[in-house]
């Protein structure tokens, strides 16, 4: 049931992406509006899918939030990206970044739904995951990730603008927005690391153990800390700032995907 809904959500996001492309290519505003309406509809269905999955896990007798395996984390990551996109869009309707955000959400959903290596079955929780910290840790981390993704999308857009126009003035407002989104992401990610270390302290007996996932989270945190400071120095703001945000994205993606190829304790994501 929930996987069927979430499968459909994948295609809604693909359709929204198509509308955003039309918006850019044909330059008609109403395509952007249609794309946003589809995105919002997809988001509602996405949320419903997550809620159904949660309820279903109770019917199976497991009863846990849908945040416990690779399939669920991909679906949730995609959800947070769309949530952030809609949030930013509602404050500043520009329909310019939809064409970058929606394909990301689409790819995560498609990967989760159609990759043969990923089981979409609801599984019970292993003892290490049975903790009240699961929900707060996962949600804050992914909200942080999503903010970093959106900030990176804006950074790519900013660098493109900079190349196209040759001077920073036309892109000044974007830099301010990147910074604001980054601050939000940084705060969520900081809470994510803190809740994670409280959890690690009760599960493994140490709040920090240089597990690859922990270390890569720290690397990501350090990169974004440097980006936040870079903004305040004249010679580092602008182009260098935007590049740092993009380097941070590479680190986010490695923290999320790449670490699983290294030995460590976070094998369940």
């Amino acid at each position: 049931m929930n996987t069927t809904i979430l499968g459909w959500v994948t295609f809604i996001y693909l359709a929204a992406f198509a509308f955003f492309i039309l918006r850019i290519v044909l330059g008609r505003r109403y395509f952007g509006i249609a794309g946003n309406i589809l995105t919002a509809a997809g988001f509602v269905a996405h949320t419903a899918g997550l809620v159904f999955r949660w309820v279903e896990s109770y019917h199976l007798g497991y009863g846990h939030a849908p945040l416990s395996n690779f399939y669920e984390s991909l679906v949730f990551f995609s959800w947070t990206i769309v949530l952030f996109y809609l949030f930013v869009e509602s404050r500043k309707a520009a329909s310019t970044i939809g064409v970058f955000c929606l394909p990301i959400s689409f790819i995560f959903m498609a990967y989760a739904s159609f990759s043969p290596g990923i089981s979409s079955q609801i599984q019970p929780l292993i003892p290490a995951l049975k903790s009240n910290w699961l929900i707060s840790h996962v949600i804050t981390c992914f909200l942080g990730y999503a903010a970093f993704v959106i900030a990176s999308v804006y950074s790519a857009f900013y660098l493109y603008r900079l190349r196209a126009s040759g001077h920073a003035a036309s892109a000044n407002g974007i830099e301010e927005r990147i910074y604001q989104i980054l601050v939000i992401g940084f705060i969520f990610f900081t809470i994510g690391i803190m809740t994670g270390s409280v959890w690690a302290n009760s599960a493994w007996g140490r709040y920090w153990g240089w597990d690859p996932k922990e270390t890569w989270a720290l690397i990501t945190w350090l990169i974004y800390a440097s980006a936040l400071h870079a903004r305040l120095i004249h010679s580092w703001s602008g182009k260098r700032f935007a590049i740092l945000v993009l380097i941070g994205l590479a680190s986010v993606l490695f923290t999320y995907f790449g670490v699983n190829y290294l030995p460590g304790l976070h094998s369940y994501l």
Binding site: W210, P212, T215, W216, L218, I219, L222, I223, A225, S226, H229, A230, I233, W236, S251, V259, L262
Partner: peptide
């Protein structure tokens, strides 16, 4: 500070 943050991030990769 920015350079130190970045170098610390870069060197942290080694241990992983």
């Amino acid at each position: 500070a920015i350079w130190l943050l970045l170098i610390l991030a870069l060197s942290s990769i080694v241990g992983t």
